[in-house]
Design a protein around this nucleic acid. Structure first.
Lengths: 229, 229
DNA sequence: TAATCTATTAACAATTCGGTAACGCATTCG
DNA sequence: CGAATGCGTTACCGAATTGTTAATAGATTA
């Protein structure tokens, strides 16, 4: 989806905020829709189907929380990301919004750069529309890999892996059977600028074999490693 | 619990009120039971075990107050929420009703929208009603988190947490198992423009471990923290 | 205003992780 | 056959990360 196809609904009772935020986001190429209270927000959300809603918590008529709850009930808007704007002082509400169905919040005063990068981060979620599972858990064989929780579950047993080990395992697991060359592994797990010694990968593979099971890891001599279930 | 599993008992001697109120709530998906006086109300309450009772104060046979007191004595109905309907003029009864065991009151004349949102607010007290998110408590494992009072209840024991500690705990508890990176934590609990030293989070985690129990908090080195019940 | 409680920092301790070196073993190849 | 190559293994070190405590400034409450 292209930027110009993305609709963002801004909801705030202060015209200033709408203008500033709206300006910054439209500069970025997003389509901006505005509303000045909760009711209007719900109406426009229904009509326009925005991908993202940025909404002030405190508003006349109907506050952000309530509006959020209402919007969450609309089936067509299940995938809409809702973000609150909160004043710095009322900081408990930052966390408070989450079970009203909010995905995130942005604290006032709003810095345009922070806002834009936050919005982009939020919109990244839209790309993998396959649902949360594709980006958070991966199941191969009898092993479940949970990226969100940084652990793997093998035969019901939970194994917590250190970062590098986890990443290495995760990489191999993304394509079971595929042989990853050392070069590929270094590039993906270590990053292409880092230079590490020749035995580093081996050692990590060793640790994985130890923790997860020797049989899963195959060495293809002269080529690299692969995983098999 | 789903909306359609929620029973609401309406008690009023005026047929009109029963119809209007009943219609609006059933539109929302709730199951409606009606009664036209206090005695009938008690009988139906016993039989049907509604989660919420909305009752007129003024009624023939037995008035709302009395009925309320009676219902409060029934063990199975301890968790039932009782709300009075009162005419605006007789506001003394608003106060009076509370020590008869009422949880809230709704003033006449009744505006359907106000009523519905009030009912939803009341039902939030019931845990885990889908589509009516809880704004007051969150229960995970054997720990109940009460945001209104900034406290948690663990095994019946009440633990009061300072704001930051509470927010941090609450954040982790919104997604048990998920690893929150330090960045994420700073962003959500401290806000996106605040800069704090490197050991601040650790210290707060420490305090939580001390107060709530070491075992709940897991450190994923190089990644962040998570909570597990 | 005094007394208390919170949030944060600084300083230091403890731990863990990532990486390396050194060596062993097997296979390959000249 | 012996050297060369590539991988496996172990032990260990240094650095990065986290844990802990105490001190302090700021906020809150009595």
């Amino acid at each position: 989806m292209k930027k110009k196809d993305i609709k963002i609904l801004l909801v705030d009772d202060e015209q200033d905020i709408l203008e500033i935020v709206g300006y910054n986001l439209s500069q970025e190429g997003y389509q901006i829709i505005t509303a000045s209270n909760g009711k209007e927000a719900i109406a426009k959300a229904k009509k326009e189907h925005p991908q993202l809603i940025i909404m002030d918590v405190m508003m006349p008529e109907m506050d952000g929380m309530e509006a959020c709850e209402n919007i969450r009930k609309i089936p067509e808007l299940q995938d809409t990301i809702i973000t609150f704007l909160t004043a710095r002082s009322e900081d408990y509400s930052q966390v408070a919004g989450f079970d009203a169905g909010a995905d995130d919040y942005i604290a006032k005063p709003i810095k345009p750069k922070v806002l834009v990068s936050k919005v982009q981060a939020l919109l990244r979620r839209l790309k993998g529309v396959e649902g949360v599972s594709s980006t958070t858990t991966l199941t191969v064989g009898n092993i479940e890999i949970n990226r969100e929780e940084y652990k793997i579950i093998k035969d019901g047993e939970e194994i917590i892996l250190p970062r590098k080990e986890f990443e290495l395992f995760y990489l191999l697991a993304t394509k079971p059977g595929k042989v990853f060359t050392r070069e590929e592994i270094l590039d993906k797990v270590w990053g292409n600028e880092v230079v590490v010694g020749g035995r580093t990968i081996d050692v990590h593979i060793r640790k994985l074999r130890e923790k997860i099971g020797d049989s899963f890891f195959k060495t293809i001599k002269g080529v690299g490693y692969k995983i098999e279930f």
